[in-house]
């Protein structure tokens, strides 16, 4: 595999939090390589360091030591402007709590990243409508988040994450606040985008429904990678896993 086939690489990633006089290692030496176009799930119980890894890969928080490379660029070397550029153009974010701007309509939310990217208003609106159609919300362009269901809000967030054609979508528990069926729909949507648009998807989750669509599953425990599995290796076990998934 040539080096530029990796879209994300982390090297000895460590993140420490200080709580009183105790130091907690949320990440303790994580080495992870993500291939271009992959759908990867980071699985683990809450408190295992999933979200911390998500924040580090997305450049939302600085690791205590180690490096994150996005398209072979060391994120620690970037200044504030370059980091903003990276967040704007290369990475799309999806959150458990959707994080839409409450006072803006669906269309305005989706258009906002294009504004930051310097796109003209008309082009931005055109792009926004196209994306909302893509996620199946073409009829709800002018609804505020409060007028949309959780699943619809997450669709808006997915459309927003795609606004500037990112090569990576980072999703932090994207189905965490959704019921079973809505969660399934969101996972299918993400998989479709992964297949059709070739966007790499990295999703932190403890939703076992995710296993079905992932190319690889990274199991995290106590801030370390416990194991990395290819989907083809665990296909047999999915039946029994899904039983547990329903209980969530």
């Amino acid at each position: 595999m040539r080096a530029n086939e990796y879209v994300v690489r982390t090297k000895d990633l460590v993140k420490e939090y200080t709580m009183g006089d105790q130091t907690l290692k949320a990440l303790n030496g994580v080495n992870l390589d993500v291939f271009k176009g992959e759908y990867i799930s980071i699985m683990g119980p809450s408190g295992s360091g999933k979200s911390t890894l998500f924040n580090a890969i997305g450049g939302l928080d600085k690791p205590s030591s180690g490096s994150v490379f996005i398209n072979d660029v060391d994120m620690a070397q970037l200044d504030a402007q370059e980091l903003a550029y990276l967040r704007c153009h290369t990475i799309g974010y999806i959150f458990q709590t959707f994080n839409l701007i409450p006072v803006m309509t669906a269309l305005e939310n989706v258009t906002l990243p294009t504004v930051f990217a310097g796109m003209s208003t008309d082009d931005g609106i055109e792009r926004g409508i196209e994306l909302l159609n893509l996620v199946g919300l073409g009829e709800r362009l002018h609804h505020k988040p409060s007028e949309l269901s959780g699943g619809q809000q997450q669709r808006v967030a997915i459309a927003r994450s795609l606004a500037n054609n990112p090569s990576i979508i980072l999703a932090d528990e994207p189905t965490g606040n959704l019921d079973l069926n809505t969660g399934k729909e969101i996972i299918e949507l993400l998989k479709r985008l992964n297949r059709e648009q070739g966007v790499t998807i990295i999703s932190a989750t403890h939703d076992l429904k995710m296993l079905d669509v992932s190319d690889r599953i990274v199991w995290i425990r106590d801030g370390r990678i416990a194991k990395i599995e290819d989907r083809k290796d665990i296909d047999i076990r999915i039946g029994e896993m899904e039983g547990q998934g329903e209980l969530h």
Binding site: V7, N71, D72, V73, E82, L86, P166, Q197
Partner: peptide
């Protein structure tokens, strides 16, 4: 996404 990734190397990180 592929063409994007290629142009977004270190040198491609234009100023915001």
């Amino acid at each position: 996404a592929e063409s994007n990734t290629a142009e977004k190397g270190r040198a491609g990180l234009r100023r915001q």
